[in-house]
Design a protein around this nucleic acid. Structure first.
Lengths: 174, 174
DNA sequence: GCATGTGAATAGGTTCACAGCC
DNA sequence: GGCTGTGAACCTATTCACATGC
């Protein structure tokens, strides 16, 4: 069954956070929307640092949805000497040497980790040490960070493999 | 609790597909690895078409893990006239006009959809019509395709929002 | 003795059915 | 009457404990 979103499911999920509608009447959509934005924590601006200015980092940086959805990139870090000092959109690429002071100075809360696997763990640890609160991780490793720090993994190879598995499971197609 | 992978869990999962070890002895790692590759369907080469040659598409195309993990990009499609005809790595970018014949002619099995949301549904339908078997979807919409076609969604904004939620839930950090 | 494989117990999450309130 | 909110039923997935075979 493909993730059909049922009415009962939505009501149950909402009930986990409170009661938002009026029986027999329905929901005030805009009000509900605002309440949900509060609950999700997307009713404010989040300060993001991009660690890794390679292809993925560049694609993300240009991705308009981030800024428009409340995620502001306030720092770009990369270890490539050819990149350090150059600008993306008026934002200067900085060396990882300054990671901690950058994060602390700018009040960075989230980190997008788009560096090679071998560098990811160290960068993550230093970012956590500097006080960030969450990590969006593109490196194909399981980061070891304190449990208080949420990590979201993006693993595109795994997702392709999930497709391969689903296709293989249901037998060769017609 | 952060996704701790337990021994019992692994055994239970394996048991779903068969019996691979010897009691009291353990698993032959390389043999197990091959069996699992078969089950996952990653023991062969998959032919992939990249639809959308923007920033994300470009990042993916250059991503070495794909090729090395058995996913071969055999076609790039984009509607931008400035891109059509140019080459990425000896692969010519083609117009979506030829989508169906390209897919059929090259035996494309998987599609990576990295086009703007407004174009995604149409491209998906045409790709399915042409016989592809699965979609890795970067467009932030729920594609409507036959249930026999598995879809994996990549939604980076949602993953950032998941971080925002997790952080907000556990109360402002120390 | 030791590590796998598996039924039983448990936990977690979804679906159902209806009570409660407009 | 209609739509929300929710306890109960149900179903799936994880954890446990041990039987099984080397």
């Amino acid at each position: 069954m493909r993730g059909r979103t049922t009415a009962a499911q939505v009501r149950k999920d909402l009930s986990h956070f409170g009661s938002f509608g009026k029986r027999g009447l329905g929901y005030k959509v805009e009000e509900l929307r605002q309440r949900l934005r509060q609950i999700l924590g997307v009713d404010r601006l989040w300060k993001v640092a991009l660690i890794g200015a390679g292809r993925i980092g560049s694609a993300l940086f240009e991705y308009p949805a981030f800024e428009s959805r409340g995620y502001e990139c306030v720092a770009i870090i990369d270890s490539d000497p050819d990149k350090i000092g150059t600008n993306w959109n008026n934002l200067q690429i900085r060396s990882p040497d300054h990671l901690e002071s950058l994060i602390r100075g700018l009040g960075v809360e989230l980190v997008i980790l788009a560096v090679p696997a071998r560098a990811a763990q160290e960068m993550a640890e230093r970012a956590v040490e500097a006080g960030i609160e969450g990590i969006l991780n593109f490196a194909p490793i399981r980061l070891k960070v304190p449990t208080r720090i949420p990590v979201e993994d993006v693993n595109l190879v795994m997702q392709l493999e999930a497709l391969s598995f689903a296709i293989t499971q249901r037998g060769p197609a017609a």
